[in-house]
Amino acid sequence: MTITETPRSPEDRKRDVLDRLERETDIWVASADADGVPCLVALWFVWDGEALWMATRPGNPTGRNLRTGRRTRLAFGDTRDVVLIDGDVDVHDREEVPAAAAEAFLAKTGWDPRGDSARYAFYRVSPRSVQAWHEVRELPQRHLMRNGTWLV
């Protein structure tokens, strides 16, 4: 395979990341327990312009890991169009979640975890770092955010 496309600028990659945060419904969520046992699941999410909101059951491995570890790595894409987001996690029980976040989640996914018969919690992920690249040609400028601040 020959790569003929020129690399996107960091500004174009940031714009693409923000578009995906608005457009995509699912994101891969990586977490680990206290012993370092990894867990990887796809969850629905909504982007509020500053953070991602997800919902899962607090007693399942992902819910427990996010609550105790307070960190996660999120991912979009395949191996040729990668977005990685490392973030800090805040947990909100369904009675405590801000109404705007829960309503945005419902509007995007069509599901309101607050009314589900099973118990769900909301997890707010504040990005600390964002990387995005299309294949090896964009690796040198893949970092778009560090320490919670956009670089572009």
Rank of each mutant, 00 (worst) to 15 (best):
A132D: 01
H92R: 09
V37I: 07
T25V: 10
V46W: 14
G59C: 14
P127K: 03
A55N: 02
V136Q: 03
W150A: 09
D19S: 12
A102T: 00
E5W: 13
R13L: 09
E95S: 07
A30D: 00
L18M: 04
E96I: 15
A55K: 02
G36E: 07
V125L: 00
A101G: 08
N147T: 11
C39T: 14
R137A: 12
G59Q: 12
K14E: 04
L66C: 11
N65M: 05
K14W: 08
I27P: 03
L151T: 11
G110R: 11
P10I: 15
G36Q: 06
L66R: 02
G36W: 07
V97Y: 00
W111E: 07
E135R: 10
R128W: 09
W28C: 08
A102S: 03
F76P: 07
W53P: 01
E95R: 12
P7A: 10
G148V: 08
M54V: 04
D112R: 07
V83G: 00
G110V: 08
E138N: 10
V91H: 12
R64Y: 06
T109L: 05
Q131G: 02
P38S: 00
D93Y: 04
D19P: 05
K108G: 10
G63Y: 04
A75Y: 06
R137T: 12
